[in-house]
């Protein structure tokens, strides 16, 4: 992956979330959420536990009913409805890692109709396994998901989310339970992909100092969006400092001070 692969249509591709709200029972989990996501931009979504970060991702996937509008550009017809391809990397703890499911089974269940209880055929998946090599996980094909380290599992899930390459990539705490070297490697990979594939990325993270160095933009959510800007701006916001008990803005580094733009080499 190299940095001179740049995005062709900066700004033309954009996902607009307008006045989105999610209500479960009598509780408003999210309200008045307005957010624009641009291709080639990595947006970090931060906020305290229970702020509705995961709920926002699930609403975008159409898994939860919501009010307001989701508007995707460019418009593409998928089975009569206009929707973008969305890649999703789930939270590790949300997965049943004791099940005897191998990496091969996982890919086959997602990209093939041939039932995996009849066996996972590597041959019939050939083209679909390319991303595994890109993330350096092609050796793991026969391993059970539960046998992978935190970092390996996240790279496998990232490869799956990028097969086929989506327009939007959503990641729910992808580095929870990953060691520091693994976090660096994962974020480096994700930020390279956003340029190479012109992806609009929304990434939930609790690891503020690390993500601050990689994100183009940061959004602080607590039921509604309370701050939206460069990592340095958002992390020096008094409400953010109060919530996390520390001013991480120094960690944002020189990258964060640069204006948000698309397609340029960092």
């Amino acid at each position: 992956m190299d940095n001179n692969i740049t995005s062709g249509h900066a700004g033309a591709c954009c996902t607009r979330i307008e006045n989105l709200g999610v209500r479960i029972g009598n509780t408003n989990i999210l309200e008045n959420v307005d957010l624009h996501l641009h291709c080639g931009q990595l947006v970090a979504l931060i906020g305290p536990n229970g702020a509705g970060k995961t709920t926002l991702l699930r609403a975008m996937l159409g898994e939860l009913p919501h009010s307001g509008r989701l508007h995707f550009l460019p418009v593409r017809k998928v089975g009569g409805e206009t929707s973008p391809r969305i890649g999703y990397v789930p939270q590790k703890i949300e997965m049943d890692l004791l099940a005897p499911i191998t990496v091969c089974d996982l890919f086959a269940s997602a990209v093939s109709r041939r039932p995996i209880w009849l066996g996972c055929r590597r041959k019939s998946l050939k083209g679909s396994l390319e991303m595994l090599a890109v993330v350096g996980a092609d050796e793991l094909l026969e391993k059970k998901l539960g046998q992978l380290s935190g970092g390996q599992l996240q790279r496998v899930l990232l490869a799956l989310a990028l097969t086929p390459v989506p327009e939007i990539l959503l990641l729910d705490e992808p580095v929870a339970g990953v060691d520091q070297a693994g976090i660096e490697m994962f974020y480096t990979m994700v930020s390279q992909f956003r340029r190479a594939f012109d992806l609009a990325i929304l990434l939930i993270s609790h690891d503020l100092p690390a993500i601050a160095r990689f994100a183009d933009r940061m959004v602080f959510l607590n039921r509604r969006i309370l701050a939206d800007g460069t990592p340095a701006e958002v992390l020096s916001n008094p409400r953010v400092i109060q919530t996390f008990g520390y001013d991480f803005s120094a960690a944002a580094g020189p990258h964060a001070a640069a204006p948000v733009h698309h397609g340029g080499a960092s």
Partner: peptide, 13 residues
């Protein structure tokens, strides 16, 4: 299988 492994992941596909 995919739905039971992770519901939002299945939804994304």
């Amino acid at each position: 299988a995919l739905t039971f492994l992770n519901r939002p992941l299945a939804r994304s596909r």
